[in-house]
């Protein structure tokens, strides 16, 4: 049942993006929303499934045409911020670095734009824990893992000035279905669904 719940939420989130797309497509293009060649969009956020994973990220969007963009997405994630000393298990570090590149298409409203993009890149995870229970020997263990990373991103830009509000949602497509077609692996996707907010600048 838990898996079915995960799936339902996964597709609910996908659908929310689709609904946004449908709403956006009904906007009339008045030609007033500024389309600049390059935007920088730093943001902060969290992984919504775990809530304890805090993210700092940046998007660089290069609009090569009005409806076609090349996108770079970079993120640092400070994982497990809420529980770094649990039952005598100390988290020495636990973080993730992402670098993805992709293409996107944008829909424009009067005061906002909506960009949908498909991203691919790599993810580096580093975890180190130490057992510090005084009853037992101290044991330290670590994992350093590089994996492929794929994802869908929805990016809202609101505001027509040089600086604008930016919101984005990133939905990973790894490990499911790229590494594993086993539906239980979707747990790894859900854990990394991210919501981010920030202020962007048009260059």
């Amino acid at each position: 049942m838990k898996i079915i719940n995960y799936i339902s939420i996964f597709f609910l989130l996908l659908n929310l993006s689709a609904v946004n797309a449908q709403n956006a497509s009904s906007f009339k293009i008045h030609g007033t929303y500024p389309v600049r060649t390059l935007t920088l969009e730093p943001a902060i956020g969290l992984n919504i499934w775990t809530m304890g994973d805090l993210r700092v990220s940046n998007v660089v969007q290069w609009n090569i045409k009005k409806r076609l963009s090349l996108i770079s997405y970079s993120a640092y994630v400070y994982n497990n911020s809420m529980s770094r000393n649990f039952n005598y298990i100390r988290t020495d570090y636990d973080y993730t670095l992402n670098q993805k590149f992709g293409v996107g298409t944008s829909l424009y409203g009067r005061h906002s734009s909506h960009t949908f993009s498909l991203l691919a890149g790599i993810k580096y995870d580093a975890i180190k824990e130490t057992l510090v229970n005084p009853e037992f020997e101290q044991v330290t263990a670590s994992v350093h893992s590089v994996s492929p990373d794929f994802g869908l991103m929805y990016n809202l830009k609101k505001g027509i000035g040089k600086y604008f509000f930016t919101y984005r949602m990133v939905i990973p497509l790894y490990p499911y279905p790229f590494k594993s077609f086993d539906i239980t692996s979707v747990d790894g996707n859900l854990a990394n669904i991210a919501m981010e907010f920030g202020v962007g600048v048009r260059l």
Partner: peptide, 10 residues
């Protein structure tokens, strides 16, 4: 490999 939550690995 990526069991997070600060409790599984050590």
């Amino acid at each position: 490999e990526l069991e997070k939550g600060g409790r599984m690995l050590a």
